[in-house]
Design a protein around this nucleic acid. Structure first.
Lengths: 188, 188
DNA sequence: GTCTATAGGTGGATAGAC
DNA sequence: GTCTATCCACCTATAGAC
C-alpha cells in the first residue's frame, strides 16, 4: 500500500532527525509499523533508496511551507522569523532539521542522498536570499554584502543554533539566535 | 604503550570528525594501527570510554589554542578571526569540529560522552563571551544584548557554517560566515 | 600489550512461499 | 504486500594464551 510507504517515510524521517541516518535500521522502522524488516525492502529496495526519497520529500514539504510564508507574510523580518519558526516547531519534538543531521553524516551517505542534501541547502538559501534582497530593496532590511552571501550564513547559523539548542534541551537557544541574527539584518 | 593509546585517540578523532561517532568501529581503528580489534579494548574497554577520552582531549587541546590566541592576540576582532581560523584549519583536511559531529548524534551517545560535548560548548562559549565583553568594553566591538548570548549564537553559527562548507567542499563558506558575523559585532 | 578464538547481536539484503 | 528463512558481513565485547 501507499499508506505503508508513507508511514515508513514518516518513521524514517523522525528517526533520522532524532538519532541520525546511520543510527536507524530497517529493523527499527519495521518494529514501529508492526511489520517485518524484509517487508520494508518491498517499498525501498535499499536504505539509500529510502534515504533519497525521505530527503526529497522533506525538501519539497519544506519548500511548500516557505511558499506559504511568502504568500501569507509580507514584511521581510516577519518572514525571517517564520522561517526560524519552522525550525522551532521541529525542535519542540526534539528533532533537528533533516538537512542538518544528514549534512553532518555527509561522508557516509549514498551519492543520491548527498545530492538531495545539497539541493535542500540550495533551495533554502535561494529562498532566504530572495527574502533578504526584497527586504533590503523595500528598506525593511539592511546588511552588508550580497543577499546570497547573507542567506548562506543565516541558514548555516540557524542549523547550528538548532543543534546547540537540542544538545542542551534549551529551545531558547534557537529563539535567541533567531532574534540576534534577524536584528543583525535590521535597519539601525 | 602510551603511544598506541594516543594513536588510537588520533585515529578515532579523525574518523569521528570525518564520518561521525556511529560510523567508525574498533575494527577501523585497529586496521589503521596495524593491530587487532581486540587489542583496542585493552586501551579502552568500551567505545564509550574511548569516546569520552577522545572528546575530553579534544576539548582540552582546543582550550589550549584559545589560550594561545588570548595571549598572542590583543584586538578583539583579530581574536575572533583566529577562533574561526581554528575551524578553518580542521576544514582544510575535510574535518568538522568534533563537538559539532557529536552534538548532531547526541541522542545516541553514552552519558559520559554527552557530558563532554556539553562541556565543550560551555568552555568555548565562555571564552567567546569573555572576548566579546572585553572587546565591547574597549570600544573594539559593538553588539546588542549580553555577551554570553552573542557568544552562544556566534559559536553555533560557526559550527553550522563548518557543516555547510564541508557539504559543498567550499571552505569559502566558512570564511564568508566568519567575515559576516565578525562584521556584525564590529562598530559601525 | 597483543594475540587467537569466540560469543551474541545486529546490519542490509535476497529468495521464494503465501 | 507481507511473510519465513537465510545469507554474509559487521559490530562490541570477553576469555585466555603468549
Amino acid at each position: 500500500m501507499m499508506e505503508t510507504r508513507l508511514a515508513l517515510l514518516d518513521a524514517a524521517q523522525e528517526m533520522a532527525q532524532k538519532v541520525g541516518y546511520n543510527a536507524f535500521s530497517f529493523n527499527d522502522l519495521a518494529r514501529r509499523l508492526g511489520i517485518k524488516p524484509a517487508s520494508v525492502h518491498y517499498h525501498f529496495p535499499t536504505k539509500g533508496d529510502l534515504g533519497r526519497a525521505m530527503m526529497a520529500r522533506y525538501r519539497l514539504s519544506f519548500l511548500g511551507r516557505l511558499h506559504e510564508i511568502e504568500t501569507g507574510t509580507k514584511r521581510a523580518r516577519a518572514r525571517l522569523k517564520r522561517f526560524v519558526g519552522l525550525f522551532q516547531s521541529a525542535l519542540a519534538t526534539d528533532r533537528l532539521c533533516l538537512c542538518g543531521t544528514l549534512a553532518t553524516e555527509y561522508a557516509t551517505l549514498p551519492a543520491a542522498v548527498k545530492r538531495e542534501v545539497r539541493r535542500f541547502f540550495d533551495d533554502s538559501e535561494a529562498w532566504l536570499a530572495r527574502v533578504l534582497e526584497e527586504g533590503r530593496r523595500a528598506g525593511q532590511l539592511s546588511f552588508d554584502g550580497t543577499a546570497p552571501g547573507a542567506a548562506r550564513t543565516l541558514f548555516a547559523a540557524f542549523e547550528g543554533a538548532m543543534i546547540s539548542a537540542r544538545t542542551f534541551g534549551e529551545p531558547a537557544r534557537l529563539e535567541e539566535a533567531g532574534r540576534w541574527l534577524v536584528a543583525g539584518v535590521s535597519p539601525r
